[in-house]
């Protein structure tokens, strides 16, 4: 008996993601949960601008593009017109927490009944490894070549903690992809965010700490260890709200 296989909501194609990239994992987990909840025919996803820009080539359900940072504005339009559908956004740290901070905060504050999957890998991947709002202090990127300094570039932005202050936000959890156990916890959190939407609870966000071996300059295995030993210190896991 097959106990672990390819989810139906994920097309059986190779992705463009680098070896060991967390996006592939997160895509798969979302597809698995959608299959398990039986909501594939009701889902409308909003893809970001960033490495996951062509997520709609991998997911086998209705998807919209959004301009960089505008996923939650697009999702607001979709969900308000079709409250019977299940609408989620999938956004990276640059998209959600830099250029789209405004859309993120206000969609959360309106308590839009959507699910948000926020991939935090502390770097801009698609454009070649520049500093992200979530880049750690001292982390080297192509635009912080000496390491991020608080004096010049500010601190890693803790958008989940910020959003947790808003009454419109019903659920925020930070999870990680660095081990099979954490991956299963991530899946559980993704499920919770969808269940909240189905039950009409309101705005739910899952922040997923995700490896970017290519722009961290580490192997896939070392990247997982870096999340576990370094990234989690700045971005502690658990239910934030």
């Amino acid at each position: 008996m097959k106990i672990y296989s390819h989810p139906k909501s994920l097309r059986n194609v190779s992705t463009h993601y680098c070896p060991g990239c967390g996006h592939s994992l997160a895509h798969r987990l979302i597809a698995e949960v959608i299959d398990e909840l039986g909501i594939r025919e009701k889902v409308i996803a909003v893809a970001p601008v960033g490495c996951a820009v062509i997520a709609y080539d991998y997911w086998d359900f209705d998807c919209s593009e959004a301009a960089h940072g505008r996923a939650l504005a697009v999702a607001t339009g979709l969900k308000r017109v079709r409250p019977q559908n299940i609408v989620f956004t999938y956004q990276g740290d640059g998209d959600l927490a830099a250029i789209g901070t405004n859309e993120t905060i206000h969609a959360a504050n309106r308590g839009e009944n959507v699910s948000v999957f926020f991939i935090n890998n502390a770097v801009y991947g698609m454009t070649g490894g520049q500093m992200a709002p979530t880049t750690l202090l001292n982390q080297k990127t192509s635009t912080s070549p000496l390491g991020r300094s608080a004096a010049a570039q500010g601190y890693p932005l803790k958008i989940s903690e910020m959003l947790a202050l808003l009454p419109g936000v019903k659920y925020i959890e930070r999870v990680s992809l660095h081990s099979p156990q954490e991956i299963m916890k991530t899946k559980k959190a993704i499920r919770q965010a969808f269940v909240n939407q189905i039950e009409g609870v309101g705005f739910s966000l899952v922040e997923i700490l995700s490896p970017c071996p290519t722009y961290w300059g580490l192997s896939a295995r070392e990247s997982m260890a870096w999340i576990k030993n370094t990234m989690i210190k700045e971005f502690p896991l658990g239910i934030i709200k």
Partner: peptide, 9 residues
Amino acid sequence: PDCCIEVYK
């Protein structure tokens, strides 16, 4: 990450 593995029991 790439859904290459299936598991049977």
